[in-house]
Design a protein around this nucleic acid. Structure first.
Length: 155
DNA sequence: GCCAACGTTGGC
DNA sequence: GCCAACGTTGGC
């Protein structure tokens, strides 16, 4: 099956692409938005994703990663001391999900939001229209256009 | 089920 | 740090 493409945001002060590069894989926990959660639940092993640095100077796409474990219960929802604790969640009926991702590569330069805005092929990116959605689908043509900006040729 | 108040995201 | 956008909560 053709892999699909996504964009996933993280604040680099909290978790950056360098953190992911060091660790190799990581659980994408802490997502507390239903639409973003539902996108994660739709992800399949092998799906590819942009690692987007949000709340950064400048914000932008930092590199690539790959889904290596499909959606499962986000354990932080059960921890009363965690910022992401979810009082409504029980082990039997969890509310929030996460996937695991594997580091693929860091771009040789960050592709700033400003630059992405100027690319006609990317004008429909959800990033520009649904600014608060932390996980969003990316169309194949959009994926390819970003790889070109990054100096990589689509495979 | 409406909608005002509130909280969070995230660019600037 | 500000604040616009927008998702969520809760009173009615």
């Amino acid at each position: 099956m053709t892999p699909r493409y996504w964009l996933m945001k993280s604040e680099p002060d909290v978790f950056s692409i360098d953190d992911l590069a060091r660790r190799g894989t990581a659980g994408w926990d802490g997502v507390r938005n239903y639409q973003a959660r539902n996108f994660m639940r739709a992800m399949k092993i092998g799906d590819q994703a942009f690692f987007y640095h949000s709340n950064a100077r400048p914000p932008g796409v930092a590199g690539l990663m790959q889904v290596c474990r499909e959606a499962y219960s986000d354990p932080t929802q059960f921890d009363p001391r965690d910022d992401h604790h979810e009082p409504r969640a029980t082990r039997e009926n969890p509310v929030w999900s996460q996937v695991d991702v594997r580091f693929v590569r860091k771009f040789s330069r960050l592709l700033p939001l400003d630059e992405l805005r100027g690319v006609p092929a990317l004008s429909e990116l959800a990033l520009f229209r649904r600014s608060r959605l932390s996980i969003q689908p990316v169309a194949p043509a959009q994926w390819a256009a970003v790889l070109v900006l990054a100096g990589l040729t689509p495979e």
